[in-house]
């Protein structure tokens, strides 16, 4: 399966989805006016990846900012990962937040309470 690679912009994150390595990475800022358009290929890729996932899928989400329009799309991404986990494949979501960024930590905890996948909260210290 072809990897999904998208370069970051000031309003959309960089994306690296690699089936062979079982790597799902979203980094940067996610504040577009229309998030559905940006996230659709990501959700579609994960849907297909779910048919034959790696034994362990490592998910790294490291966002500096995300808007509420992205928040639903990020949940859709996590729901695809939850389906993979429910089908007895290992999945770990690493949620990165900058030192002292309590809002971003809390946002991760909100997702953790909705999605039945193991989360790890990772503080980035300068």
């Amino acid at each position: 399966m072809e990897p999904l690679i998208i370069e970051g912009t000031p309003k959309t994150p960089s994306v690296r989805f690699d089936a062979q390595q079982g790597l799902v990475e979203i980094k940067g800022r996610s504040i577009p006016e229309n998030s559905i358009e940006f996230y659709k290929p990501l959700v579609d890729w994960l849907e297909k990846y779910g048919e034959n996932p790696a034994p362990l899928t490592q998910v790294n989400v490291q966002l500096e900012y995300f808007n509420t329009s992205s928040s639903k799309c990020i949940l859709d991404v996590f729901k695809k990962l939850e389906a993979i986990f429910k089908a007895k494949h290992d999945v770990v979501i690493n949620w990165y937040y900058e030192e002292d960024d309590e809002d971003m930590l809390e946002a991760g905890e909100d997702y953790e309470s909705i999605i039945r996948v193991p989360f790890k909260m990772v503080e980035i210290v300068d």
Binding site: E33, S35, I36, N67, T68, K72, L75, D110, I114
Partner: peptide
């Protein structure tokens, strides 16, 4: 309320379903 809307409400193309 935030988590309920996030998890249960369908968002429009306009965005966040009132989460802003």
């Amino acid at each position: 309320m935030y988590k309920f809307i996030l998890n249960h409400q369908k968002f429009s193309d306009k965005g966040g379903g009132g989460l802003g």
